[in-house]
C-alpha cells in the first residue's frame, strides 16, 4: 500500500469510528424513552431491563444498518419489539374478529351518568382512577393491542411509525389502537363510575 493510500484508509477508519461513537451516544440518549415503552410491553422491571439490554447489544452490533437522519428511536423500538416477539411471549392471538363493543364516548358517558354531565368539565375527574389500576388495565390487554397502545400512547409514535416498528399495515395499527383503547376504558369503567 502506498503512503497516500494508507493515509486515506486511516482517515476512513477514523471517520467510521467517529460515526460509530456518535451513533452510540445518540442511542444511549434515548435509553430512558426506550425503557418506558419496554416497561409497559413486559410484565416486570427485570424483564424490561433485560429486553433493553438485548436491544442495545443488537443495535450496537448492527449500527451500520441504521441510516443516519432517520428516526433512531423507531429503529431501536423495532429491534426491541422483534426481540420481544422472538422471546415467544406471543402465543395469545388478539381476537381481531370480535365486534367493536362500546363507542369512544363510553367511559365519558358512564362518568356523566353517575356524576353528572358537568363533571366531565373538571380536569380532576380522571384522577379518581388509581394509577395502579391503569397499569393493570394496560397489562391485561391482548399483546397485539397492547403493543400498539403502548407505542402510540406511551411512546408518542405516529400511526406510520408504529406500523413500521411492528411491520403491520397502518389500517391494522388504527384498528388495534382503537380496540385496545376501548378495552382499556371498559376495564376502567367500573372504577371511574
Amino acid at each position: 500500500m502506498s503512503e497516500p493510500e494508507a493515509a486515506t484508509e486511516a482517515r476512513e477508519i477514523a471517520a467510521g469510528a467517529r460515526d460509530r461513537v456518535r451513533f452510540e451516544e445518540e442511542a444511549l440518549a434515548l435509553a430512558d424513552q426506550v425503557y418506558r415503552v419496554a416497561r409497559r410491553l413486559v410484565g416486570s422491571r427485570e424483564e424490561a431491563e433485560d429486553l433493553v439490554q438485548d436491544t442495545y447489544a443488537r443495535a450496537f452490533r448492527s449500527w451500520r444498518s441504521y441510516t443516519p437522519g432517520t428516526n433512531l428511536r423507531a429503529w431501536l423500538l423495532r429491534i426491541l419489539t422483534n426481540l420481544n416477539i422472538d422471546r415467544g411471549r406471543r402465543i395469545q392471538r388478539a381476537p381481531d374478529t370480535q365486534p367493536l363493543e362500546e363507542g369512544d364516548y363510553y367511559l365519558a358517558n358512564k362518568v356523566a351518568e353517575t356524576q353528572g354531565e358537568q363533571a366531565l368539565d373538571q380536569e380532576r375527574v380522571v384522577e379518581r382512577l388509581s394509577q395502579d389500576s391503569i397499569v393493570d388495565a394496560l397489562s391485561s390487554l391482548p399483546h397485539d393491542f397492547r403493543d400498539v397502545v403502548v407505542l402510540v400512547d406511551i411512546g408518542d409514535f405516529s400511526y406510520a411509525d408504529a406500523a413500521q416498528i411492528l411491520d403491520i399495515p397502518i389500517g391494522t395499527v388504527m384498528s388495534r389502537l382503537h380496540r385496545g383503547r376501548r378495552q382499556l376504558k371498559a376495564r376502567l369503567a367500573d372504577e371511574a363510575a
Binding site: 430512558d32 418506558r36 409497559r40 382512577l129 394509577q131 394496560l138
Partner: peptide, 13 residues
C-alpha cells in the same frame, strides 16, 4: 384521560 394514563404508566429507567 390520555394524559393521565400516560402519567400513570410512565416509569423512569
Amino acid at each position: 384521560l390520555r394524559r393521565y394514563v400516560k402519567l400513570s404508566a410512565v416509569e423512569r429507567m
